[in-house]
């Protein structure tokens, strides 16, 4: 087991390297470098451009050096926790992102939990009551949920709430808590606001999982060991939960690696529509204003988080399913 985990962590290193290169390319993609846009912005607002500041900035990011040197300077900074400077906010990127990132992680985690809590029981029910009315109902809801993109669902929900309850459901906090420091009251307030984004983000994943769960469980239920167990007089409930469900849950856990990017992706766009104080809106804004160090750092960290999530799911799977850890060892 330990050697399996170690190997998986080793595997992560090239992945993270490629992710960092892609993020760096994204930072470099917009025409002109960071400094030219910074100077352009300063002159636009009528501020004087201090030659010494420019020189020091140039030195800090190595803008006069070849591109790969710039990459190494940037990645060295990132490893030390220096993500560069956001010129739009005139603050180090590190200061801007952590709170938003932690909120993103919290929302994504809740969405993941929501997805499982809803999808697994419904999947089990649909499989054991195949072709019943409820099965058809859940299947069609599932299809609709898969076809409706997150932001549209957010939009429709917002519209319905506004129309019928006169509520505007944006944000994560009530107005009086936005600037307040963290307290129990604020956390409670957040949980109160959280359920709409969690439902919106979780729906697409839930619908996919219901289908996977239903499909694999149906396959398992047709197998001979189930018939044998039934013939031997094992009670239906025990029969269901002891073996087939446990096997059917396997692919669900192994697909966390795909669900997670989906959830983070969905969280980004839903957050923009619902104007949540998470990474989404800030990422969009930084991209619009080509505040590339901020945007690049977001993408780097979001992708890294996904990779770590996948790692955790792989380890979980190996722990749950001995076949995997032995197969890989051979």
């Amino acid at each position: 087991m330990i050697s399996y985990i170690a190997r998986r962590i080793l595997y992560m290193i090239p992945t993270l390297l490629v992710i960092s290169v892609i993020s760096f390319i994204l930072i470099q993609l917009p025409p002109g470098d960071y400094l030219t846009s910074y100077i352009a912005q300063l002159t636009e607002t009528g501020e004087s451009v201090d030659k010494a500041t420019i020189a020091s900035l140039k030195k800090r990011y190595g803008l006069d050096k070849p591109i790969y040197v710039q990459y190494f300077m940037w990645i060295k900074g990132v490893l030390q926790g220096d993500f560069g400077q956001s010129f739009e906010w005139n603050k180090p990127v590190g200061e801007l992102i952590w709170e938003r990132l932690s909120l993103t992680v919290i929302i994504s985690l809740f969405s993941l939990i929501f997805t499982y809590i809803v999808a697994i029981p419904i999947g089990i029910y649909s499989a054991t009551h195949q072709y019943s009315l409820a099965d058809y109902f859940f299947t069609s809801i599932g299809f609709l949920g898969l076809a409706t993109p997150n932001f549209l669902l957010a939009l429709v929900l917002m519209f319905l709430f506004y129309k019928y309850f006169g509520l505007s459901v944006g944000g994560l906090f009530s107005p009086e808590f936005i600037e307040a420091s963290w307290s129990w009251a604020k956390i409670l307030d957040m949980i109160n606001h959280m359920w709409i984004p969690v439902i919106v983000i979780g729906t697409a994943g839930t619908c996919g999982l219901i289908r996977i769960m239903r499909g694999t469980l149906l396959d398992e239920l047709r197998k001979q060991y189930v018939i044998t167990a039934r013939a031997k007089g094992v009670g239906e409930r025990k029969l269901l939960f002891k073996y087939p469900v446990r096997i059917a849950i396997n692919p669900i856990i192994s697909t966390i690696g795909w669900t997670l990017p989906q959830i983070i992706s969905g969280a980004t766009i839903t957050a923009i529509v619902l104007s949540l104080p998470t990474t989404g809106p800030l990422l969009l804004r930084s991209l619009m204003s080509q505040d590339m160090y901020l945007a690049g750092s977001f993408i780097l960290i979001l992708a890294t988080l996904t990779v770590i999530g996948t790692l955790i799911s792989d380890i979980l799977l190996a722990w749950l399913d001995p076949r995997i850890r032995y197969e890989r060892r051979l």
Partner: peptide, 21 residues
């Protein structure tokens, strides 16, 4: 490996960043 890495990227942020360019 390349495919796995690309798939582990959250698509929307990546698409956003690319199309912003």
């Amino acid at each position: 490996r390349v495919i796995e890495i690309l798939r582990s990227f959250p698509t929307i942020p990546l698409w956003l960043a690319l199309s912003a360019a």
